[in-house]
Simulated assay, not measured.
Amino acid sequence: MRPVTPNSAVQGKGSRSGFYRSANRGAWERIARGLYLPEGAPAADWDQLEASARRPEATICLISSLAYYDLTDVIPDALDVAIPRGTRAPASEGAIRWHRFDAGTFLLEREDVVIPGSTQRIGIYTPERTIVDCFRLRADTGYEIPRDALKEWLRRGGKPATLMKVAQALPRSTKPVRDALEILA
């Protein structure tokens, strides 16, 4: 199930005021400003739905992506979402932390996944890109989180050459990743 807006819900079926009356009667559940799901829709991550609905290019990144891949024990306090630099971060009510990544490397190692409990899709960076980004942005994430994620990734059979290939494609990341690999290997 995809979230609907009042405009998309009433196309050819009535008026906006009619939609709001049905929402007030409980036919629609408000998940964010201007976004609704039908009452009784399957449980889904409302923050992911909101991010994906507000920005189709939204991509889960950093600690939220590490948590998705079970590479960290840290529970993120907000959904980390990347958007291309130069685009405006939308206003949101959910616990979403918007990050702006360089448009030239934005699609590097990006995949689409289905939001559980929904038919909507959202982007997510691969484990390798996420680890490299966490080292690159260690002022935001801290040094322990990417180091521990790298340890777990290596324990699962990750190849250092693959990680270095991703690190070389991103600015300011080759040296910290190489240093961490030398210490852990």
Results as ranks from 00 to 15, higher is better:
Gln120Thr: 14
Trp153Gly: 04
Thr126His: 00
Val166Ala: 04
Ser64Ile: 00
Lys165Gly: 03
Glu111His: 13
Ile124Glu: 02
Arg55Asp: 08
Arg97Pro: 05
Val113Asp: 01
Met164Tyr: 02
Ala89Ile: 00
Glu144Ala: 14
Glu93Gly: 15
Thr105Glu: 09
Leu137His: 13
Gly34Arg: 03
Arg54Leu: 15
Arg147Thr: 15
Leu35Arg: 04
Ala167Tyr: 11
Gly18His: 12
Ile145Ser: 02
Ser22Gln: 14
Asn7Lys: 14
Ile131Phe: 07
Ile131Ser: 07
Tyr68Asn: 07
Ala27Val: 06
Arg30Tyr: 07
Ala167Val: 06
Pro176Met: 08
Gly104Cys: 04
Arg85Gly: 06
Glu39Asp: 12
Pro90Tyr: 02
Asp133Leu: 11
Leu170Trp: 09
Gly142Trp: 10
Arg155Asn: 09
Val132Glu: 05
Val177Leu: 13
Arg147Met: 15
Gly117Glu: 08
Lys151Phe: 04
Leu108Phe: 11
Gly14Gln: 12
Asp112Gln: 13
Pro6Tyr: 11
Pro42Tyr: 03
Glu109Pro: 02
Tyr68Pro: 06
Arg155Val: 05
Asp148Thr: 07
Tyr68Ala: 06
Phe101Ala: 01
Ala91Glu: 12
Thr5Cys: 11
Glu144Met: 10
Asp45Ile: 11
Val81Leu: 06
Ala185Phe: 12
Ser64Asn: 01
Asn24Lys: 15
Thr174Leu: 10
Ala67Cys: 06
Cys61Tyr: 03
Asp140Gln: 14
Thr141Lys: 13
Pro90Phe: 05
Thr72His: 05
Thr72Ile: 05
Arg147Leu: 15
Val114Met: 13
Ala23His: 09
Glu109Met: 08
Met164Val: 13
Gly40Trp: 13
Leu163Cys: 08
Trp46Arg: 15
Leu66Ile: 12
Gly123Ser: 00
Gln168Gly: 13
Ser52Lys: 07
Lys159Trp: 01
Asp179Gly: 04
Val113Ala: 05
Ile115Pro: 02
Glu182Gln: 12
Ser15Asp: 05
Arg121Leu: 13
Thr162Val: 09
Pro56Gln: 10
